[in-house]
């Protein structure tokens, strides 16, 4: 028996933005894959390329940006070779995306009900009455109270958390195989975030939807994702099953990130570990390892030689010359 081909397979993807001062290499040669129903976390700080990755998959990169290389295979088909018309059939129906700001997906001048039914009528060819029933059921699925009444309301009459839940409802109307959620709870309060994540987890489980969760929040990923990949300066620098990656991060950047967040279950008020400096320019990223200027362990090799990048072939990978050879606690105690 051959294993199932991956649902999504990204090979050596490069997305650059052309500017007057040079090419901004937002995504610079990343490879990864997702299987059916997998929940993958893509973690990184601003400018690491995580949202550009999502936009590249959806075919939403616009000039001055362009995908300059690589392949994005979805169910074996290279999305980069599809025409805009063909891509439209995939977008929304097969792969759906939700963003941080739910108002990017909701039109303020139409009622929530009419936006939901429009999707159903266009994509699934339902009659007005059928679509209305399904739309109301879906609102109930995402825990909108009195859905029949709220069906007639405009987006501004909903709270932020409810709007995001409506957007999730809309994204799932066509039962996509893959849902890309780009910072879906970043604009929400923590109790609304808990509601939204709880809902996404339940829906993904029920329907077997694969979810790519893009976020800067290591906590949100911990409760949701089976696998995690960490991005830095346009590259994937480490990937692995969530349990292993959090318990035993091998890349100094991953370690640094985990160490620098204050934790709710930690009552110490001692100094936080902090990664020095700031993220590098993406026009002229450092030669060698992109993290070396901020790395506590950098050697001459790191400055001159680029570490082998994560290629997506094995479940646990780390793009560092000295992967896993650090012990932060003892190293720091020794300082």
């Amino acid at each position: 028996m051959t294993p199932d081909p991956p649902l999504l397979d990204v090979r050596d993807l490069r997305t650059y933005f052309l500017t007057d001062s040079g090419d901004v290499r937002a995504v610079d040669g990343i490879s990864f894959s997702m299987s059916k129903g997998e929940r993958l976390g893509v973690v990184g700080e601003s400018g690491s390329g995580k949202s550009v990755t999502a936009a590249s998959i959806m075919g939403l990169i616009e000039p001055p940006g362009s995908v300059v290389g690589g392949q994005i295979r979805f169910r074996g088909q290279d999305l980069l070779r599809l025409s805009e018309r063909e891509m439209q059939k995939i977008r929304g129906r097969e792969i759906a995306i939700i963003f941080q700001d739910p108002m990017t997906a909701l039109d303020p001048v139409f009622t929530v009900g009419s936006q939901l039914t429009e999707t159903l009528r266009i994509h699934r060819g339902m009659s007005r009455q059928e679509a209305r029933t399904v739309a109301i059921d879906t609102l109930a699925d995402v825990h909108i109270p009195s859905p029949e009444k709220r069906f007639k309301d405009y987006p501004h009459q909903f709270s932020g958390g409810m709007r995001q839940r409506v957007v999730i409802a809309m994204a799932l109307l066509c039962d996509p195989a893959l849902l890309i959620a780009d910072e879906p709870t970043t604009a929400l309060d923590v109790t609304s975030q808990a509601q939204v994540m709880d809902l996404m987890l339940g829906l993904a489980d029920d329907r077997g939807t694969a979810v790519m969760l893009i976020t800067h929040d290591l906590g949100v990923v911990a409760g949701f994702c089976e696998n995690v990949q960490v991005m830095y300066a346009g590259e994937i620098i480490e990937r692995g099953p969530a349990g292993q990656l959090y318990a035993n991060p091998e890349h100094p950047y991953t370690r640094g990130l985990l160490e620098s967040v204050p934790r709710l279950d930690d009552d110490s008020q001692t100094k936080l570990y902090s990664i020095r400096g700031v993220a590098p320019s993406m026009i002229q990223p450092p030669r060698g390892c992109r993290f070396w200027p901020r790395c506590d362990y950098a050697t001459d090799k790191c400055v001159s030689e680029r570490p082998r990048s994560c290629c997506g072939d094995s479940p646990k990978e780390c793009a560092c010359h000295f992967a896993g050879q650090f012990n932060l606690e003892t190293d720091r105690a020794g300082v």
Binding site: V190, T191, A194, G219, V220, A222, A242, A247
Partner: peptide, 12 residues
């Protein structure tokens, strides 16, 4: 407090 995620899958 219960809604705040903790960056540790085992605890979560």
């Amino acid at each position: 407090m219960s809604a705040v995620p903790i960056p540790d899958p085992v605890i979560e």
